[in-house]
């Protein structure tokens, strides 16, 4: 089906959570420690990844391709790509982050975590709760007590918006 003309490149199928299949060169997935071990040790040609939504997998494969093409001369372009890559709705970003953590693609994990961190930075506690839909289970007295432990962390202009 997907034999390459050179006959050298190995082909691998990844199966996303909704059974969608993605056929790609084996060399691309070696960036993932998890898949690398599977490919090297078990010599599989098809890997089911039921916990990863296809939509997420599409994004990750897109990243792997771009990263594989990275050279010193297109560094800037890659940086812009990375910026756009994490410019998605928060739920999607978190899905990607969790999937990347599972696949053990370390560089991308760091980058995704930075993008999540940037959405928390400079925000007020109330805004962070709203953004991530965290429900406080403290009493108001408890919370104000805890705030007093590290007053400097709550000083200054904090952003109350959820943008």
């Amino acid at each position: 089906m997907a034999s390459s003309t050179t006959g050298e490149k190995k082909i691998l199928t990844l199966k996303g959570g909704d059974n969608e299949e993605f056929i790609l060169e084996e060399s691309l997935v070696l960036q993932s420690e998890l898949l690398k071990n599977m490919v090297k040790e078990e010599r599989v040609s098809s890997i089911p990844l039921p916990s990863i939504k296809s939509k997420t997998l599409v994004k990750i494969i897109e990243y792997l391709k771009k990263h594989a093409e990275l050279t010193p001369s297109n560094k800037e372009e890659f940086k812009n790509f990375e910026k756009e890559f994490v410019n998605v709705v928060l739920e999607e970003l978190l899905d990607i982050t969790v999937a990347v953590n599972y696949l053990k693609i370390n560089g991308l994990l760091e980058f995704c975590c930075q993008a999540v961190a940037d959405r928390i930075k400079d925000k007020s506690v109330e805004a962070v709760r709203k953004i991530f839909r965290i429900e406080s289970d403290f009493t108001p007295e408890e919370e104000s007590e805890f705030r007093k432990e590290t007053p400097e962390a709550f000083e200054g202009d904090l952003d109350d918006t959820t943008n």
């Binding site: 760091e110 975590c113 930075q114 999540v116 961190a117 940037d118 928390i120 930075k121 400079d122 925000k123 506690v125 962070v128 709760r129 965290i134 429900e135 406080s136 289970d137 403290f138 919370e143 805890f146 705030r147 590290t150 400097e152 962390a153 709550f154």
Partner: peptide, 15 residues
């Protein structure tokens, strides 16, 4: 990945 001050603030989000 965030300044410590921001990380400390997460301590009052929830238990």
């Amino acid at each position: 990945k965030m300044p410590l001050r921001d990380a400390i603030r997460t301590s009052v989000l929830s238990k």
